[in-house]
Simulated scan of single mutants.
Amino acid sequence: MFVRTRKLATLLTGAAIAASTTMVAGAAPAAAAGPCGSSYTRVGVYAVHDKVDGSRTGTLEVYYSSSTGKNCALTYGYGRYANTKSWKGVIISRGDGSGEDADAGEFTYYAGPVYVSAPNQCIDVEAVVPAWNSRKLNNVHCG
């Protein structure tokens, strides 16, 4: 009898944990704020690669808010540069080079967010991880 009771208690505890985890995970509001703010939707993810060996060093993420007409960008480290203090940078501007916003330095998680107002225009974005590896995109995400 003790073994059955113990198994039942274990099963009930596991079910309670699973239910509470599901409730917590499912409780996130639909408009949860991302790294750029609640009205932004991710529109692009781009890998940054080492110029010498081709290994991935970072990730550039681009977001857009239709309510503000602004784009936002962040650069994350990847592999040995993820969650480690290292040089990370991000630059965003309108396709014509105006309205530039940049953030760079020794960061543990990411550089940015940086913003540019570019309704009905293309943007330029660049990620740098570490200082000598970059990924630049010109005239992208045209609105």
Score class of each variant (00 low, 15 high):
residue 63 Y to M: 13
residue 44 G to Q: 11
residue 71 N to K: 00
residue 26 G to C: 06
residue 69 G to D: 08
residue 21 T to L: 15
residue 40 Y to N: 01
residue 90 V to T: 12
residue 78 Y to M: 01
residue 26 G to W: 10
residue 43 V to H: 06
residue 43 V to M: 04
residue 89 G to T: 10
residue 95 G to W: 12
residue 10 T to M: 08
residue 64 Y to T: 09
residue 137 L to G: 09
residue 69 G to T: 10
residue 110 Y to P: 04
residue 11 L to N: 08
residue 82 A to H: 15
residue 92 I to D: 07
residue 52 V to I: 06
residue 139 N to Y: 12
residue 133 N to R: 04
residue 78 Y to G: 01
residue 73 A to V: 11
residue 69 G to Q: 06
residue 85 K to A: 09
residue 133 N to T: 04
residue 107 F to W: 12
residue 76 Y to H: 13
residue 52 V to W: 04
residue 119 P to L: 02
residue 11 L to P: 01
residue 83 N to A: 11
residue 137 L to C: 07
residue 130 P to Y: 03
residue 11 L to V: 14
residue 127 A to C: 09
residue 30 A to Y: 12
residue 105 G to K: 02
residue 87 W to L: 01
residue 84 T to F: 06
residue 115 Y to C: 03
residue 94 R to C: 08
residue 55 S to L: 00
residue 139 N to G: 13
residue 57 T to Y: 00
residue 98 S to N: 07
residue 118 A to Y: 00
residue 73 A to K: 03
residue 68 T to L: 00
residue 42 R to H: 06
residue 119 P to D: 02
residue 105 G to E: 06
residue 96 D to P: 03
residue 142 C to S: 06
residue 46 Y to Q: 12
residue 126 E to Y: 05
residue 111 A to R: 06
residue 87 W to T: 03
residue 71 N to V: 02
residue 3 V to E: 13
residue 54 G to W: 00
residue 130 P to R: 02
residue 22 T to Q: 11
residue 13 T to N: 05
residue 123 I to H: 02
residue 44 G to I: 10
residue 14 G to Y: 05
residue 105 G to M: 03
residue 64 Y to K: 13
residue 114 V to E: 14
residue 140 V to S: 03
residue 95 G to F: 09
residue 125 V to I: 09
residue 80 R to V: 13
residue 59 T to G: 02
residue 47 A to F: 02
residue 63 Y to W: 15
residue 59 T to Q: 11
residue 67 S to M: 03
residue 66 S to C: 03
residue 78 Y to W: 12
residue 141 H to K: 04
residue 89 G to F: 01
residue 119 P to I: 01
residue 16 A to G: 11
residue 108 T to M: 01
residue 143 G to I: 03
residue 88 K to W: 05
residue 138 N to P: 03
residue 102 A to T: 15
residue 111 A to Q: 10
residue 130 P to K: 02
residue 89 G to I: 05
residue 135 R to P: 05
residue 111 A to S: 12
residue 16 A to H: 03
residue 122 C to E: 07
residue 90 V to L: 07
residue 43 V to T: 14
residue 13 T to K: 05
residue 72 C to T: 11
residue 132 W to M: 08
residue 107 F to I: 10
residue 44 G to L: 08
residue 143 G to S: 07
residue 66 S to V: 07
residue 27 A to P: 05
residue 81 Y to M: 03
residue 109 Y to D: 15
residue 12 L to V: 14
residue 1 M to D: 14
residue 111 A to P: 11
residue 134 S to P: 07
residue 85 K to W: 07
residue 36 C to A: 15
residue 14 G to A: 15
residue 86 S to A: 13
residue 33 A to L: 13
residue 115 Y to A: 05
residue 141 H to E: 14
residue 63 Y to V: 10
residue 15 A to R: 08
residue 129 V to R: 01
residue 100 E to F: 05
residue 48 V to C: 00
residue 131 A to W: 12
